[in-house]
């Protein structure tokens, strides 16, 4: 080795201390919101669950560059899995969560075997189709899923045997916040790993990835499976906190909104998902209260503005603004 080549950093820890600033901020905000809005914990929990869901899409779209519109397939499967486990097997929240993750990952793996061979518009259409098929299956399997009436009668044991799910959703909120932070830390490790780097490589040039010996198709199936597991966790959280699973979990709107939130916040950055969901759902919450008929107009305008003026998403705003000033 030459002398100039030897000045490389020593082995780094998985999660560097300074790099955890964002997670600390999100945790602090999460804790603060609990005390500021004690009567909106249901809504706040929904936001946190949505963040977990959008994070799963970020791994597929933001990192690997695969645009899909069927992320709800894994979310819905996770929700039904968690609900069914709670009713028929065990009311333990953590086992339900694990079931949701496994079910989401499983359905992502199986559908990914087909989807990851497709590209562009074909992939978009096929991914929508997967979610629609699952919705219809859930609808027809009425004895098991309750069909259009939804899956009812979900009762959860206390979390770790200690914290009972209460009517206001206090325990549920802490539970969801904890899971969100864990998912964020998990994804932070993943996106900085060799696997994460290869995902970005595939986004940049699948052709070159093949030329450096990567089995691109299998790599994508694997990434899609991991993302499916996380989407399954989000679905399971929703099922456990609301104690209800309806056919809507597979709705196309759900996948599409996740995509819009991600683009809004900034794809390819974990905190883009966080910011995008928070802003989208806050605007929706406030605007829908002010004008229940036209609030979508505001969301539309917001998305248009971001796409035109800050294509990198709202997280790219500071950089775009400083660039403007310097010019």
């Amino acid at each position: 080795m030459s002398s100039s080549a030897s000045d490389v950093a020593p082995r780094r820890p998985l999660l560097a201390g300074r790099g955890l600033l964002w997670e600390a901020v999100i945790l602090a905000v999460g804790v603060g919101l609990f005390f500021l809005f004690p009567y909106d914990l249901g809504f706040l929990s929904r936001i946190l669950i949505m963040i977990v869901f959008v994070l799963s899409l970020d791994l597929v779209l933001g990192y690997a560059g695969v645009a899909t519109l069927g992320q709800a397939a894994m979310y819905g499967t996770g929700a039904y899995a968690a609900g069914l486990i709670a009713i028929h097997v065990t009311a333990s929240p953590l086992l339900g969560l694990a079931a949701g993750a496994v079910a989401g990952a499983g359905i992502a793996f199986v559908s990914g075997l087909v989807l990851m061979r497709a590209h562009g518009l074909t992939l978009l259409m096929l991914s929508i189709a997967v979610a629609q098929v699952l919705q219809e299956v859930a609808n027809k399997a009425r004895p098991l899923t309750g069909g259009a009436d939804g899956l009812r009668g979900i009762r959860m044991d206390p979390i770790l045997g200690l914290w009972e799910f209460d009517f206001i959703g206090r325990a549920g909120y802490w539970y969801v916040l904890t899971v969100l932070i864990l998912v964020l830390l998990f994804l932070k490790v993943v996106v900085n790993s060799p696997l994460g780097l290869s995902a970005r490589g595939i986004q940049e040039s699948p052709e070159r990835m093949r030329a450096i010996g990567t089995p691109v198709y299998w790599r994508l199936v694997w990434i899609y499976t991991i993302a499916g597991g996380i989407a399954g966790v989000a679905g399971a959280l929703a099922a456990q906190v609301t104690a209800l699973v309806s056919l809507e979990v597979f709705n196309f709107d759900h996948s599409a909104e996740a995509l819009i939130m991600l683009v809004l916040g900034g794809a390819g950055r974990l905190y883009g998902a966080v910011v995008g969901v928070a802003i989208f759902m806050l605007v929706e919450h406030v605007a829908a209260a002010v004008d229940p008929f036209n609030w979508l107009f505001l969301i539309g305008a917001l998305v248009l503005a971001v796409v035109f003026f800050v294509p990198a998403g709202l997280l790219g705003l500071p950089k775009a603004l400083t660039g403007l000033v310097r010019r």
Partner: peptide, 26 residues
């Protein structure tokens, strides 16, 4: 990393292996 068939590792830092970093620097 791909040559070393490490592309599937997800619980390690991509820039965390001194041997790889030395080779890249060289």
């Amino acid at each position: 990393l791909e040559r070393e068939r490490r592309g599937l590792r997800m619980f390690a830092r991509a820039d965390g292996d001194p041997a790889v970093e030395h080779e890249v620097a060289a």
